[in-house]
Simulated scan of single mutants.
Amino acid sequence: MRLLPLIVLALSAHVTAEERPLRFSVTESWAMPMIRIENGQATGGILYDLQHRLAQKVGRRAELQVMPRMRVQQIMVRGEIDVRCYVNPAFLQESHYQYIWSVPFMNQRDVLVSRSQPPQDLHPEQLPGHAIGTVLGFTYPRLEPLFARGDLRRDDARTQHLVLDKLLAHRYDYAVSNDKSLEWYNRHQPPGQRLYESSELGNDLMSCIVRNEPDVPTMQLLRAMVRMKEDGEFDEILSRYR
Rank of each mutant, 00 (worst) to 15 (best):
M1A: 05
L4E: 10
L4R: 10
P5T: 01
L6H: 10
S12P: 14
H14P: 14
T16C: 12
A17Y: 08
E19V: 06
E19A: 07
T27L: 08
S29T: 12
R36S: 15
I37C: 12
E38T: 15
E38A: 12
A42Y: 08
T43I: 15
G45A: 11
L47A: 12
Q51I: 11
H52E: 13
A55Y: 10
R60Y: 10
R61D: 15
A62P: 13
Q65T: 10
V66E: 08
V66H: 11
M67K: 08
V77P: 12
G79V: 00
Y86K: 05
V87I: 01
P89N: 00
Q93N: 14
E94M: 08
E94V: 07
S95I: 04
Y97W: 05
Y99C: 04
W101V: 02
S102L: 00
P104I: 00
P104G: 02
Q108Y: 13
D110V: 14
L112P: 14
V113E: 07
P118G: 01
Q120F: 06
G129K: 06
H130A: 10
T134E: 06
G150M: 11
D151G: 04
A157N: 03
H161W: 10
V163L: 01
D165H: 04
K166Q: 03
R171P: 05
D173L: 02
D173Y: 00
S177A: 02
W184C: 08
Y185D: 10
Y185S: 05
R187K: 15
H188E: 15
H188D: 15
G192E: 15
Q193W: 14
Y196C: 11
E197D: 11
E197N: 09
G202L: 09
M206G: 01
I209G: 05
I209H: 04
N212F: 12
P217S: 10
M219I: 11
Q220I: 04
R223K: 07
A224W: 05
M225F: 07
M225N: 06
V226H: 05
R227Y: 11
K229S: 03
E230R: 03
G232F: 01
E233D: 06
F234V: 05
E236P: 06
L238Q: 00
